[in-house]
Each structure stands twice: as structure tokens, then as C-alpha cells.
Write a protein that binds this DNA or RNA. Structure first.
Lengths: 266, 266
DNA sequence: ATAACATAACACCAGAAGGCGATAAGAACG
DNA sequence: CGTTCTTATCGCCTTCTGGTGTTATGTTAT
């Protein structure tokens, strides 16, 4: 009743899920009062405020006296899509498929996507290995691993994505050239990859220029949608990995337009 | 009985302290067996191994079958000095003094030092503020703060310092110019600041070039020691902040050589 | 001035994680 | 081939922290 956003919302702490639901609620209603949310979600007013503070920190809503209002949908979309990360099993399958492409001694670049995060859990034992990323959760995890050379891509921190971006980041990327790039996007048409936010596009484009082999990770939810900014034609990627649940009739068009599509088995 | 390293070792989790003590023990004896450590520290062999693994990850010791040996003292020194971070009160005082130099709207650079970390807890309410740092714990904390623009300085991760360095980092620093720099070093003579490791020196030098006002944070333990690499003359810093416990006769020589020294009150 | 709202400060609880050792399985050395 | 050292796995216990509500204090609007 409270949420328009569906999917497998397990793997998410209770408050995190509630926050995502609140975000959806706020976006749907445009602007609501704290008390409305108290009723809608059955928690105390204090908790509502705490949730709203967090959402505001992430740039999803704006608080003012008496309530909150939604920020531009682009922000909401990419944030909530990220938070209420669905399709865990599919992501894992894609990650496993991607992992097979990595060999000891390589250098790998990862972008700020949950798909990339799934990959990290699988590469511990590929050694030696150099990993470059601008994604803070990824950096944190990689810093614990003994045998991996971590190259953090710095830049301006974005609370919405929990990653670093902007010009400083693009420059850091440009100073590198890795063997592999694994990246994801918010939408994929039959010909192009898309993303909501311009600043992110900037960094991803730089990444595409800085890698020898480029791999796009796409779970089926991304397909046949578009988003504001066109990132690159799919033919720019050496491989596009989709999960097994992707309908065959969505895969064909990609191939027809010249993309190399591989299907990750569960 | 086990430790040659003294000081206020509170504020440190039990295993972390033991690990630091083990590190000291290993360095003192050059090389020891796991069983020696079991006896010396009264913990199980399993625990000893776990500690040694962690120390090896940090680059402090080298494991081989039958025991461990110490790494070059330079690594040990800067690592353990960092881990068994003493003089908490003094650091806080220095941080408070430093904080007074920051004004809303400024951009501040912090290096990878515990002194810098202490400062972070105090700047939450200076807003707006931009903070650039290559220190992972600092990055993690700052990423939580709503009103602070965080500029992460990427680079090659060093487990020993828990920070980013190398050429990529130096380049990232060079692309910036901040109003303020707060940094610390491992040793201070009456004329110069010193540091053990060359790669670190590289980054700190870059930082010195990239800030308008440079501030050196020095707790009294650092004074009248030297270390391998000369970082810069003290006159390169606009201000040197020392704590109140610094003996007067150590402060005088600094001033005699032209440094501007300020004493932080507890 | 007073009502409505927001924040701060406490305290509580539960669940997670950390930390440790015992045992057992595995790997290197002689 | 056995001995010694190392690692993996499990289970226990403790500690910590995340998440919450309640009450009290502050703040803003009307």
C-alpha cells in the first residue's frame, strides 16, 4: 500500500527499506507532512524526521518547516533504483560471468554500481590484481583485501551515489589505462546505453576511453528503458552481459544492431 | 613486560593494542616463532596467527613457515606510531586550535594523520566547507556529513597508512589549490619536518605546493626526533601548532630558526 | 503568546559482529 | 612418513551499535 516500487526488497535493512519507501511516497505525492508519514508508516515522528534527514542528505528530498517535497525525479530515480536494489540473484550471476573474464595480473576498472559490488566478492583470489574504482563501498571493501592493489579514483563525493565524480574524477580516470572495464547504466535501449545524470555520464565516458576491453553489465530490468543522457552506443562495448531472465526478444534487437551479447547463467 | 612502546594506549581495541605490541615485540627480537608469541601474550596460537596475518596485511611483518620477521623499521615506525596513537588529549587540543583557523566557505586539505582525524570531529558545523583528503578513515567520516563538500584524493591504497598515495595522488593534489592545509609528520627537528617514507613525502610535498596557508600539527612526541627523509624546512609552514606539554626549551629553537609556533591550550 | 512543529538528549532493546579458542583438516618440512 | 606448523570451520560468549520511542527543550509561525 505504501510503495509503488516493487521487487525483491530483501537484502536491505529495515530502515533503509522504509526510507526508500518514504522516498517513493514523497515523490508520488509531491509534498507531504511529517505527520502524514507517521500515519502511513506507523513509526514515531522522531523516526520519520531521522529518515527524512537521511534522504535529504542523499539529495532525494528537501525539508522545510511543515513537511518535505520531492527533488527532481532524475535524482530520485537513480537513487532509489540503487537503494532498493532488486534482482540479487541475477546480479550475482552476471558477476560470476564477468569474473571469468578476469585473469591474474590484469588491471580492472569498476564504476559505481551494485553490479560492480557483486563482482568484488568474487575476485578475492585472483592474484595479483589491480582494481580501480570511484565507488566508496567498493573502495572500503577492497581496502581490506590483502592481495589486491587498490587504486581509488578520487573526486567530488556524491551522497546520492556514494561515489566520487566530477572533473577531478574524470581526470584521474584519464590518467589510467586498464585492461578491463566493468560498468553498468540506468537504462539500455536496443542501440544505446543511457544514464540519468550528466556528471555521471562524464565519468563513465572517461572510463570507456581508458579501458582496452569494455564490458557492460545489464540486468533485465534495465532493458527497453531510456534515460535522459545517451552515454554511448552499445557497439562501443566489447561485450554486453545480460542475465538469464532477459526475454529472448529483447536480446535479438541488440544483436541485430551489432552488439556482442552474452547471457549469464544462474 | 611485553611492550617497549609506552604511552596512553587506551582508545584502542584490545586486539588492535595486542597487535601493536606484537609488532613491537617482533621488531625488537628481529624474528620470532608463533609459539613464542603464544607464551609472551597468553593467547591461543590461532589468535596469534590472526594477529600476524593482519600485521602482514599492513606490511609490518613478513610471515614464513615457523615464524615471522620484522620489516624495515621505517614501515614499522610509521605504522605503529599510527596504531598506538597516544596523547589523545593533546591531539584534541591541537585540533581545537586548528579549527579556529577555519572559516565558512574555505577549502581545507588534510593529510593522512590522526591529528587530521581529530579535526574532523570539530568542523561539522562550519558550513559551507570543502575538505580534500587522501585518508580513508577521514573520507569515510566526511562522507556522512551533510553540509561538507568532500573531495577525495585518490591514488594507490596503502594498508600501512590506510590512505592513498603515489603518483596518481600527487597529481590529484596538484590539480587543486586550497585555502588551508593541515598536515602532520613523523618527526620534527629544530629546523625541518621529516618523514620516514618516500612515497608519503611525495604526496606531502605536493600538498605543500597546493595550499595557500600551510599548518603543521605537532604533538610533543614528535619533537627532537628525525626521520629518514627531509620533508621541508619549518619556515615553509605558515604556522606550527604544538601542544601545551611541549617543553619550552624545545619550542625556542624552532622560533630561533624563524618558525611561527603557536601553542594549543588544553 | 501560544500552538505547531522540529530537534536534542536520554534510555532501552535486539540483533549483529567481534573476538576467541578447540578441534580438525591440510600443507610443508625433514 | 611422520612431525610440525598452518589454516579452516565451528560455536561460544561478549561487546557494540543500530534503531527506536519518550520526554524535554528549542524554534518558528500566526
Amino acid at each position: 500500500m505504501t510503495s509503488e516500487v516493487d521487487g525483491d526488497t530483501t537484502e536491505l535493512s529495515r530502515p533503509a527499506r522504509r526510507q526508500a519507501e518514504i522516498a517513493a511516497y514523497v515523490v508520488k505525492h509531491g509534498s507531504v507532512s511529517a505527520n502524514d508519514l507517521v500515519e502511513a508508516f506507523g513509526v514515531s515522528v522522531m523516526t520519520v524526521h531521522r529518515d527524512l534527514d537521511e534522504l535529504e542528505r542523499q539529495g532525494v528530498v528537501r525539508k522545510y518547516r511543515g513537511g518535505v517535497s520531492a527533488q527532481p525525479t532524475s535524482v530520485f530515480e537513480s537513487n532509489v533504483a540503487y537503494r532498493l536494489n532488486t534482482a540479487h540473484a541475477e546480479k550475482a550471476a552476471i558477476a560470476r560471468h564477468a569474473r571469468a573474464m578476469i585473469e591474474p595480473g590484469m588491471s580492472v576498472m569498476l564504476d559505481d554500481s551494485t553490479s560492480a559490488l557483486a563482482l568484488i566478492d568474487l575476485i578475492e583470489d585472483i592474484t595479483p590484481l589491480t582494481v580501480a574504482t570511484n565507488f566508496l563501498p567498493a573502495i572500503t571493501r577492497l581496502s581490506q583485501l590483502r592481495d589486491i592493489t587498490l587504486l581509488a579514483l578520487g573526486g567530488i563525493y556524491s551522497a546520492t551515489h556514494d561515489s566520487f565524480g566530477g572533473m577531478p574524477c574524470a581526470e584521474a580516470v584519464e590518467a589510467l589505462h586498464t585492461d578491463l572495464l566493468f560498468c553498468s547504466v540506468s537504462a539500455v535501449s536496443s542501440t544505446h546505453a543511457f544514464h540519468q545524470e550528466e556528471e555521471i555520464v562524464l565519468v563513465k565516458r572517461a572510463m570507456l576511453r581508458s579501458a582496452r576491453t569494455k564490458v557492460l553489465l545489464v540486468d533485465h530490468a534495465k532493458l527497453q528503458r531510456t534515460a535522459l543522457h545517451r552515454l554511448a552506443p552499445l557497439t562501443d562495448f566489447d561485450v554486453v552481459i545480460v542475465d538469464e531472465k532477459t526475454p529472448q526478444d529483447l536480446i535479438e534487437p541488440l544483436r541485430d544492431h551489432g552488439a556482442t551479447v552474452e547471457v549469464a547463467k544462474l
